[in-house]
């Protein structure tokens, strides 16, 4: 079981309120991603759940039990830290065994679980090495292995991929997703990278300055962002925001349109502009378009290779049903 309920959870460091009272329900087996810009309180929230920090007020229930009195180890949660936090003086085997040793699990059972975790994570050959002799990706796996063997009610990940290079990051992302499918255990995953959030989550929690901006499935947030912040944060390249007469024409203070929802043509369209930079990725082409009179730049994403170049004049047509309308407080209308 791994059901976690946050009730009016609030956290202040001294006089600074980092997390205003917040409610959240995390269901058993769910993969929940906390996403938000750096410094918005994601780690703090995770550490409150882990028990590494005390809540200032409110309550965290784990499987229906209040957790205030429970020290971190008694909460049945396992955490994978951003820095991996491996014990540098212990071999991989000892690292993975440590939580079981602390729990006084029998030696046979320890060995069985270590072997299982090692083979699942491709670590069998490295069991006798020290963390210092491993690559970043391998260290990451050891940290995950150490979490798995405890058979926790939920896994907590704090930006686990941010210290890896881009290629490894994609690989590990898949591995963690597969792990979740296999174990079907609750996972709470913190990241500032919306791509990780979109690709991995069952449920995304978007945070800003300690406040929950929106909770929902990835596509729900993509298609139906509640406000400008979420609309701008989810999706890449970022949504275009247009104010002024063009927005007023749609009866809104601001309108938003995603780059992939604008059709581009060399001959005709609603809006006219000049190509600043064109990024040709092969699979897609991104145009950054100036002098539209709408916004500083309008970004457009066209599928495949489009042979328009820097300086050329183009015409843009937003797909009418994909336009998001926001009021003057930034809320979706």
């Amino acid at each position: 079981m791994g059901q976690i309920t946050l009730k009016k959870v609030r956290k202040a460091f001294g006089d600074v309120e980092v997390i205003p009272p917040l409610d959240l329900q995390i269901n058993d087996g769910e993969f929940v991603v906390f996403v938000g810009p750096s410094g918005c309180g994601k780690s703090t929230l995770l550490r409150l759940i882990a028990g590494l920090e005390d809540v200032s007020s409110g309550e965290i229930e784990i499987d229906g039990r209040p957790s205030a009195e429970l020290p971190p180890a008694k909460r049945g949660l396992a955490m994978v830290f951003q820095s991996y936090a491996l014990y540098p003086h212990m071999s991989v085997r000892k690292n993975i065994a440590f939580p079981m040793k602390m729990a006084k699990i029998s030696q046979d059972e320890q060995n069985r679980r270590i072997e299982a975790a090692a083979s699942a994570l491709n670590l069998t050959e490295y069991l006798d090495r020290k963390p210092g002799q491993l690559s970043g990706g391998q260290r990451q796996r050891v940290a995950i292995g150490r979490a798995i063997v405890r058979e926790p009610a939920a896994f907590l990940f704090d930006e686990p991929l941010s210290n890896l290079d881009a290629a490894l990051r994609v690989g590990m992302r898949l591995e963690i997703s597969e792990l979740h499918k296999r174990l079907a255990t609750t996972m709470i995953y913190v990241t500032h990278d919306q791509i990780e959030a979109m690709t991995m989550a069952d449920k995304i929690v978007v945070l800003r300055a300690g406040r929950i901006e929106q909770v929902g499935a990835p596509l729900e947030l993509y298609e139906n962002p509640r406000n400008i912040f979420v609309a701008g944060f989810i999706g890449s390249p970022r949504m275009n925001f247009i104010e002024g007469p063009e927005a007023a024409r749609h009866n809104a203070h601001t309108i938003g349109i995603r780059p992939e929802h604008i059709d581009v043509s060399a001959t005709e369209g609603d809006w006219q502009g000049r190509i600043g930079v064109a990024e040709h990725l092969g699979s897609d082409t991104y145009f950054h378009i100036h002098d539209t009179g709408l916004a500083e730049t309008v970004t457009v994403r066209a599928s495949g290779e489009v042979t328009l170049r820097h300086g050329e004049t183009v015409f843009l047509t937003p797909q009418a049903e994909k336009i998001h309308r926001f009021d003057n407080e930034g809320l979706k209308q």
Partner: peptide
């Protein structure tokens, strides 16, 4: 973080 990991463990 390493000491916190031990605490979690």
């Amino acid at each position: 973080e390493i000491l916190e990991a031990a605490r979690m463990d």
